[in-house]
């Protein structure tokens, strides 16, 4: 049986209303996995760039790429896993910062090279950027009872060096 692997797919699409739902609808209609999806306009305001984290066998990923290309609004599709790439995700974590937690949180934040961006009497808000696994590791290393709230953006990815996705 074919093994499934995590893939990061980047795509450029016309920045038009409904474009996002065409992609989201495609994934649900065809039963493809979707781990995260991020989208925002690019330096060219007529184009949006989307990063989709999905998983599947090579055959499924091939179909996903083809089906995405088939969408009329999609200009270009790239499977970042076809080459070297960098992946980053932003996470904001609000943690308890009372008593011993206060020093502990500061220390953990430093270890993971995060930043405390809001300080309140009983809590810190930590900003952390990195690969999804790094963010997972940070969450894992915290005392569960200390986590008040988390929010993650989902991954953004970009090819290394000369790998450029542009119209």
């Amino acid at each position: 049986m074919a093994t499934t692997a995590r893939h990061i797919i980047s795509l450029l699409m016309e920045n038009e209303s409904g474009a996002l739902s065409r992609v989201a609808g495609l994934f649900s209609a065809r039963g493809y996995n979707i781990e995260s999806l991020t989208v925002a306009p690019t330096e060219d305001p007529t184009l949006s760039r989307m990063t989709i984290v999905t998983s599947g066998s090579d055959e499924v990923i091939e179909q996903i790429i083809k089906q995405l290309n088939k969408l009329i609004d999609v200009v270009k599709v790239l499977d970042l896993n076809d080459g070297k790439f960098i992946e980053r995700e932003l996470m904001l974590v609000k943690v308890k910062a009372t008593g011993t937690f206060r020093e502990e949180m500061k220390r953990m934040c430093d270890i993971f090279r995060g930043r405390i961006i809001d300080v309140a009497d009983g809590s810190f808000t930590i900003e952390l950027t990195g690969s999804g696994t790094k963010l997972d590791a940070f969450i894992e290393s915290l005392d569960k009872s200390a986590i008040l709230e988390t929010v993650r953006t989902g991954a953004s990815g970009i090819g290394r060096g000369d790998r450029i996705l542009k119209v």
């Binding site: 055959e59 091939e62 179909q63 083809k66 089906q67 290309n69 088939k70």
Partner: peptide, 11 residues
């Protein structure tokens, strides 16, 4: 004519 028809159900 449709690339997505190729290898969709059968390699």
């Amino acid at each position: 004519i449709d690339p997505s028809s190729i290898s969709k159900r059968v390699k």
